[in-house]
Amino acid sequence: MKQKQAMFWLQVRRATALAVVLLLWEGISALGWVDPFYAPPPSAIGGAIAELFADGEIYGHLEATFGAALLGLFLGLIGGALLGFIAALLRPVAELLEPVMAMLNAIPRVILAPLFIIWLGIGIASKVALSFILVVVLTFFAVYNGIRDVDTRLVERVKTLGGGSWTLLREVYVPSVVAWVMGSLKVAVGFAFTGAVVGEFVASSRGLGYLLAFAQSTYNAALTFALIVLVLVFVMILFGLAGALERYLLRWKYR
C-alpha cells in the first residue's frame, strides 16, 4: 500500500515537471525568445497532430508503419527464437550462424535499408525486412545464450526424476527461453519501430517515416515534432502491452 502511494506521488511529480517544461516552452515562444520556425510551441505541435487526425489521412500512414513494425517484430521473434534454438542444440549450425549474427550485431543494421529497398522495392516488404533484421539478431542472441546458460541443476533434477528429452524441452528449456525473450521484448518493440520508420524515411510512399521525410523536406518543424510525439505515444502503448505480457508470462518471477 505504502509502495503504491509512493508510486502515485512519483508519477504526480513527473507529470508536474513535464507540464512545467511545456508551459515554459510555450511562454518562451509567446515572448518571441525563440523562433517558432525552428522550435514551434507545444500548442502548434498539438495543432499539427489534431490536423493530421482531422482529415483522416494519418490512418493510412499509421496502418503502414504499424503493419510493417508488427510483422517485422513477429517474424523476427519467431525467426530469432528458432535459429537460436537450433544453434544452441546443433553445434555445426552454431559454428555457421554465430559469426554471421555477431557481425550483424556489431554493425548499425539500419545501413541495410538501401539494400532492402533495391531488392524489395519501396513497398512494405523492405520495411518488414529491416524491422525483421533488427529484431532477429537481438532475439537470436537472447535465445542462444538463454539455452546455453540453462541451469544444469534443473536439467539434472528433471533427469533424475526420470524425464527424457521431451520433458526437458517442455519443463526446462522452453520456460528458460521464454524468460530470456521476455527480457528483451521491449527492446525488440523499439527495434521493430526503428526498422519500419527508418525504412519509410529512406524511400516509401506511405507511413510515419514517409511523413517525416516530407516534413523535413518542407522545413515543417511543427509537423516533425507532431510525428515524433505520435511515434513516442504508440511505442509507449506497445511497451505497456509488452510489459503486461511479461508480467503475466513471468508471474513466477514478479508475483
Binding site: 541443476r153 539434472e156 528433471v158 526424476l161 524425464g163 519443463e171 520456460p175 513471468l250 513466477w252
Partner: peptide, 18 residues
C-alpha cells in the same frame, strides 16, 4: 533445484507426471 516457473504443487507433481 525446484523449477522456478512451477508452483510447489506442480513441482511435486512433475515426477508423477513423468
Amino acid at each position: 533445484a525446484l523449477l522456478p516457473w512451477r508452483t510447489a504443487r506442480d513441482n511435486v507433481a512433475l515426477g508423477l507426471r513423468i
